[in-house]
Simulated assay, not measured.
Amino acid sequence: MGEKEEVKLLGMWASPYSRRIEMALKLKGVPYEYSEQDIFDKSPLLLQLNPVHKKVPVLIHNGQTMVESLVILEYIDETWKLNPILPQDPYGRAMARFWAKFVDEQILTVGGKSFVKAEKGREAAIEDTQQLLKCLEKELVGKDFFGGKNVGFLDIVASTMVPFCLTRLWEAFEADVIPEELFPEIHRWTRNLYEIDFIRDCIPPKEKHLHHVKAASERFKSA
């Protein structure tokens, strides 16, 4: 990376989407300036740089602005070649993208939004979530990480959403959705993640995170 390069990330400490961008930048060894954002009181800068979605993360690289975490992850991988996160073969890349969309579009919707909204239907939401998680469980059999021996694209996406975001959402409401007896592979994978410095650095402090999750859930229910 050249000396004149400037990398800035607009993020939020509890956002799984901005945390995954920090993971990728740390894995690549890319220095960056971080700007914490209040997602409930959005700054003029955030609204200016992401006028469509008005959300974090926003990555600025040498004056060029990118939004949407999966798009940003691919940009980072294509821009800084060291420690690739996407598989090198086209099929592997396609499958990593498929499962990443599955995590964000299916597991988040059922395991997060449905769980919070369904005051009387949480048991059904938990059962539906577990059916989805079984698909990820199968993908981990015989592997340290989704990416094989090393953390890859899907590990970064799934880690921020499953063990470090949704698990704490469920825990805040005293629900155990991923018991180890049902999901031994996911628990083994999570322990492997905790052994990696740059992953641990991007995990929000638990008690602070649980407090935030409860407050955010109340906002979401009343929205």
Score class of each variant (00 low, 15 high):
6 E>W: 06
15 S>M: 10
24 A>H: 03
27 L>M: 13
28 K>L: 08
28 K>W: 08
31 P>K: 10
32 Y>H: 02
33 E>T: 15
33 E>K: 14
35 S>N: 15
37 Q>S: 09
41 D>M: 14
44 P>G: 00
45 L>N: 04
46 L>V: 05
52 V>C: 06
52 V>P: 11
53 H>C: 12
62 N>F: 11
63 G>W: 03
67 V>H: 10
71 V>C: 12
72 I>L: 02
76 I>E: 00
78 E>C: 08
79 T>G: 04
81 K>S: 10
84 P>I: 08
84 P>R: 01
85 I>E: 03
88 Q>F: 09
93 R>H: 07
99 W>R: 07
104 D>E: 15
104 D>I: 08
104 D>G: 05
105 E>H: 07
109 T>H: 11
111 G>S: 07
111 G>M: 01
113 K>C: 10
118 A>W: 05
119 E>T: 13
122 R>F: 11
129 T>D: 01
145 F>S: 06
146 F>M: 10
149 K>H: 12
153 F>C: 02
157 V>I: 06
161 M>S: 03
161 M>Q: 09
163 P>M: 11
165 C>S: 14
166 L>N: 01
166 L>A: 08
168 R>T: 15
171 E>Y: 11
176 D>G: 07
182 L>F: 09
186 I>N: 00
187 H>E: 12
188 R>F: 06
191 R>M: 14
192 N>F: 05
204 P>T: 02
210 L>N: 02
216 A>S: 14
217 S>H: 06
218 E>M: 08
223 A>G: 13
